[in-house]
Design a protein around this nucleic acid. Structure first.
Length: 427
RNA sequence: GGAGGAGUGGCAGAGUGGUUGAAUGCGGCGGUCUUGAAAACCGUUGAGCGUGCGAGCGUUCCGGGGGUUCGAAUCCCUCCUCCUCCGCCA
């Protein structure tokens, strides 16, 4: 959510931003309603002031008759105030609905473009895509050879898009998680396991739309809870309504959670094997910080993602997301796309991580503030998030890039300590 | 699941219908004293919104929502959270 005063003062920039992002807007209507609301607010406060003044004189009334007259006067003023208040609240609600649909402003250097075709490649990882001297298999084939993934069992118990991991692949999965968590802890992140469900109000604050026709998340019937699509939701909601002391920021959190996605409308999109599933585990980075820290922290999160994928020796490229492809809350977003040799005809890049600077957009919706010593008042913090590893896709990248001719898979050195020192699985 | 109790400012803790945004203490900040520090003493110390160049003024907020009343931290209803005891359970 944008600051209402900012929208009023910068209406043309807000409109231009919506157009760059391919989001329809009703800024003009919002401005009109806001003008009305302010008038109404002034009326409400004036009536309230008068009513309060009358109330204070009632105790000092000189006789019963004067007392009753003043009471009647007070009643009348309160009634007028209530009527004005109701009008004000209706206007406020309409404005808020419009505001909630406005996306965050975009970073001035973010590439402008309609969709992901305008995304800008910023660089590559340390490892170039491998030249195979044998036809590489995709992860589904590799896993099948060693009975590492049971898709049929997943479908039987839970439906299409669910799966069981088995055997050594589970150990690899855990090794990646442990490696990521220890690396993040080393870099000052506090490890946290989070609830896998959150209240809808928190989802909305983060920028998800639970229960809409295009919802990405599963909701629990007869409750206001939804399964989280990412730990960003719970970590971001963790301090909703709270005020940080400025010295305690930046606060870096590392969330370990399951992620649930309906993937509604994703049918037909590249979705083989583990690539697009309804549930996966994710190690997520989340940061609360001061406004002047968020740009640098965004670079830091991007760098951590690069370091992690370099460490597991997976080739990747970094992409600066175009305005039209940014989610609503993001001011700027970088994606890492890993090389997946088994994808498409002869390998393709596939998104494996994403890091966003959401500036104060989520903080305003969730009411997360900071307070600086010596200065009056509070301000909204900035929030950032980034994927360390989404395990489903990380596993694809490791299996496909480190496969051998016989289907065995080399364990990247960085992961070996977390896999009993083993250098290979399968075979 | 059953029975009780409690939710007030950064914290602790008064306040049960009318200048109470809220006593008091602690903490924080400023000052006096001191070579310096401590102690002591004095002063100061919540946030949101509106309005004004500004000092300020107005308004809202005592877990959330609703109600009674001219007026609610204070009375009523409801929800949430926490604590204690009992039961059940990984």
């Amino acid at each position: 959510m944008l600051d209402r005063k900012y929208i009023v003062a910068n209406a043309s920039a807000v409109k231009a931003n919506c157009e760059n992002r391919n989001v329809p807007h009703e800024v003009d209507q919002l401005l009109e309603l806001e003008t009305q609301r302010r008038d109404m607010l002034r009326q409400v406060e004036e009536l309230n002031r008068q009513a309060n003044a009358v109330s204070k004189t009632i105790g000092q009334a000189k006789d019963e008759q004067e007392r009753e007259e003043r009471k009647a006067n007070g009643r009348d003023l309160r009634a007028q105030k209530d009527a004005a208040q109701t009008q004000h609240d209706e206007l406020d609600l309409k404005i808020r609905e419009l505001e909630l649909r406005l996306p965050n402003m975009a970073h001035p250097e973010a590439p402008i473009g309609e969709d992901d075709k305008s995304n800008l490649e910023l660089g590559r990882g340390k490892h170039a895509p491998r030249e195979f001297d044998f036809p590489p298999q995709d992860h589904v084939e590799i896993a099948k050879q060693w009975d590492w993934i049971d898709f049929e069992g997943g479908a039987r118990t839970s439906g299409a898009g669910f799966y069981f991991l088995k055997g050594d692949l589970v150990l690899l999965d855990l090794a990646i998680q442990q490696y990521a968590v220890s690396e993040l802890v080393r870099r000052g992140f506090i490890p946290m396991t989070t609830p896998d469900l959150a209240q809808d109000s928190i989802l909305e604050g983060i920028g998800f739309m639970p229960r809409g026709p295009e919802t990405q998340v599963y909701s629990i019937e007869n409750s206001n809870l939804s399964l989280i699509g990412t730990a960003e939701i719970t970590l971001g909601g963790l301090y909703s309504g709270e005020t940080f002391d400025a010295e305690t920021l930046p606060l870096k959190l590392c969330g370990i959670s399951h992620c649930f996605r309906t993937e509604a409308g994703a049918a037909g999109r590249a979705s083989k094997g583990l690539y697009r599933v309804h549930q996966f585990t994710k190690i997520e980075m989340f940061v609360f910080c001061l406004p002047d820290q968020s740009d640098a922290l965004h670079q830091e999160l991007k760098q951590i993602e690069c370091d992690l994928f370099d460490a597991i020796e997976v080739p990747f490229r970094v992409v600066d997301t175009a305005t039209g492809d940014l989610g609503g809350p993001a001011y700027r977003k970088y994606d890492l796309e890993a090389w997946m040799p088994g994808r498409g005809e002869a390998g393709e890049w596939g998104e494996v991580t994403s890091t966003s600077n959401c500036t104060d957009y989520q903080a305003r919706r969730l009411n997360v503030r900071y307070k600086q010593k010596e200065t009056k008042g509070t301000h909204f913090v900035h929030t950032l998030n980034g994927t360390a590893f989404a395990l489903s896709r990380a596993l694809i990248s490791v299996l496909e890039n480190h496969q051998n001719r016989d289907g065995s898979v080399n364990v990247p050195e960085a992961l070996q300590p977390y896999l009993s020192g083993r250098k290979q699985i399968g075979g």
